[in-house]
Simulated assay, not measured.
Amino acid sequence: MEFESAVKISGLVKTFNQKEVIKNCNMTVSKGSVYGLLGVNGAGKTTIFKLLLGLLHPTAGQIEIFGKDIQIGENCILRDVGNMIETPIFYEHLSAIENLEIHLSYMGIQNTDIQKTLGTVGLHDIGNQPVSQFSLGMRQRLGIARAIIHQPKLLILDEPINGLDPVGIREMRELFKDLVKKHDMTILVSSHILSEIEHIADVIGIIVDGSIVQEIELATIEKDSADGLEEYFLNIVHGGMKQHA
C-alpha cells in the first residue's frame, strides 16, 4: 500500500536542558501538497524542521517520512529530502556551480544539469563569480537551487523568500507551484509573510508553544473567515497563548 502522507509526526517531544520546546506535537503533510507551517518567533518551527532532517533527535515520539521511521532509516530517507533552513551557508570563495558540484558529490549524485537548475531559480549567466560577491537575494536563490538539484520528493523550506525583491518573490512562488504540479514534490514551508503562504499553500499548520494547535485547508479559511489568513492566524495564536499561559 502506498502511503498518502509525506510526513507524519506523532507525539513528538524535544527537550533542551529539561525544558520541553516541542510538546506532544502531531502533524500530517499529505503527498503532493504545499503545507504552510505558521507560528510566532520561538514557537518551534525551525526545531521541527531540524528534527525532520535528523539534525536533532526526538526526546520522544515518532517521525515518519513517506511511511518510514526516520530514526531507523535516516540516511536512505534523507536522500529524498531537500531543505533550506535558516541562513544558507556556502563555500564563499567558490562559484555557485562549484558549490553545487560539492553538494552533489556529498549526496553521491552524478549527471545532474547544474546550469539548468541555476536557471530555474533565476541565477543566469553568473559565470565563475564567487558566492562572497552575491547579494542576499542571490544567496537565497542558490540555497533553493541546492535544495532542489537532486530532485527530492520532499522539500523543506524555512523562510525561503527572505531577501528577495518583489520580482524574485513572484518567481519563487511560481517555481514552488511548478515543483508540486510537474515534479510531484511535496513542500513544507514556513514564512512570516502570510500573504505569500496564502498564494501557495494547500494546508496550514499553526504551531503555538511547541504544539500544532490547528491543521486546516486554506480553502476552508478562505471560505469561512472573511478577514483571511492573517486574522485567522492571529486569533488562533492569541487564543493558544492564553491557553498555555
Rank of each mutant, 00 (worst) to 15 (best):
L155G: 08
L155K: 09
L157W: 14
H183N: 09
L157C: 01
D158S: 03
G163E: 07
D184K: 15
L175Q: 07
I169R: 02
V167R: 10
P166A: 04
E174Q: 14
P160E: 11
V167P: 07
L179E: 07
L179S: 03
D158Q: 08
R173C: 08
F176D: 00
H183C: 03
G163M: 12
D178Q: 12
R170L: 10
F176R: 01
D158T: 05
R173G: 14
M172K: 13
D184H: 14
R170E: 15
I156S: 08
T186C: 10
M172Y: 03
F176A: 02
T186F: 07
L154K: 09
F176H: 08
I161G: 03
H183L: 01
R170G: 00
L175R: 02
D178M: 08
E171V: 03
P160R: 15
D165T: 13
I169Y: 01
P160S: 05
L157H: 07
I187K: 12
E174D: 07
D165P: 11
L157S: 07
I187D: 04
L154N: 04
R173P: 02
D165Q: 06
T186H: 12
D184M: 10
V180K: 12
M185V: 06
G168P: 09
L164I: 09
E174K: 08
E171N: 13
P166F: 13
K177N: 15
